[in-house]
């Protein structure tokens, strides 16, 4: 698979609109998510190759300026300089354009790392003939999701820090289970972009850092009232990163575990996502301690 045209119409639509919303037959949904995760692998490979080309073309520009400069002085021809310096510059511009294009068809890693493997492992638990409710926002970090911007201390004439906060509620999944219970998964991402500018005598240095916080909430709504082993659930929570909550809705106690994952990256928003294995472990704990 190399081009978006090779995807099925449903997958192409999801990639183009950057959105997936509806009630799905489990088999069809798995097929679609499998396609999307394969597409993500393709885009990731293209992004890696574009990053390599970008690096080498930047080196090529420096080498071209020096080499082309010397050769054009010897041959007394500007055409040589234009050829040596212009070719890598054109490649760099083309690569930057390609990277921008790839960003618009990229799929968040949550699909490949969390949602698809989780659903694949739980497919035998889904009630026969029932549909899975899934809402996925595939657009990632966009300007529209910026929730606030602020200048942070230390502020001064030479030093400036600016933080931008992005809210990205990426996934809401509801699974009707074979015993009548409902398992729900919510993933809410928060991104913090930290831009630092330091003004020197001759130039200003810019540095960007990204922090990503993924709040993963696994909830279990039993078919009939159960007495939750709250103390055992709380004891199973990972200290500092997990929170257990039991709330009542229409006479049934719903238990949930919230796990906070933290990721960081420089220059661009972190791609990392919560591992499906741990999310499944959260559901497993809820299942075993709801008796």
């Amino acid at each position: 698979m190399k081009s978006i045209e090779e995807l099925t119409p449903a997958a192409r639509e999801a990639v183009r609109t950057q959105r997936l919303d509806g009630h799905w037959e489990p088999k069809k949904l798995l097929r679609l998510l499998d396609e999307l995760q394969r597409w993500d692998t393709v885009v990731e490979a293209q992004k890696t190759s574009a990053a390599k080309v970008q690096k080498y073309s930047a080196i090529g520009i420096f080498a071209g300026i020096f080499g082309g400069g010397i050769l054009s002085a010897i041959a007394e021809s500007f055409a040589l300089f234009a050829l040596f310096a212009g070719t890598p510059t054109a490649i760099l511009l083309l690569t930057l354009w390609r990277k921008k294009r790839l960003r618009s068809v990229d799929i968040p890693d949550e699909v490949r790392v969390t949602i698809e493997p989780l659903l694949r492992k739980l497919r035998a638990d889904i009630a026969e003939g029932q549909r899975v409710r899934l809402r996925l926002d595939l657009s990632g970090v966009t300007g529209a999701k910026a929730k606030g911007k602020q200048q942070m201390p230390p502020s001064g004439r030479a030093f400036k820090i600016e933080q931008t906060l992005y809210d990205d509620p990426i996934c809401d999944l509801r699974l009707p289970l074979a015993d009548g219970a409902e398992a729900a998964l919510r993933i809410d991402n928060t991104y913090l972009k930290i831009e630092r500018a330091q003004r020197g005598r001759s130039k200003t240095k810019h540095k960007t850092k990204w922090k990503k916080q993924s709040s993963v909430t696994a909830s279990w709504s039993p078919a009939a009232p159960v007495v939750w082993k709250t103390s055992a659930l709380e004891a199973s929570a990972v200290r500092g990163v997990e929170r257990v909550q039991v709330r009542e809705k229409e006479g049934i106690q719903i238990a949930s575990i919230q796990h906070i994952y933290k990721f960081k990256a420089a220059d661009s928003a972190p791609d990392a996502a919560p591992p499906a294995k741990e999310v499944l472990g959260m559901f497993m704990r809820l299942r075993l301690l709801g008796m």
Partner: peptide
């Protein structure tokens, strides 16, 4: 027995 969460 099938299933992971709802074993039957």
């Amino acid at each position: 027995h099938t299933g992971l969460l709802v074993v039957r």
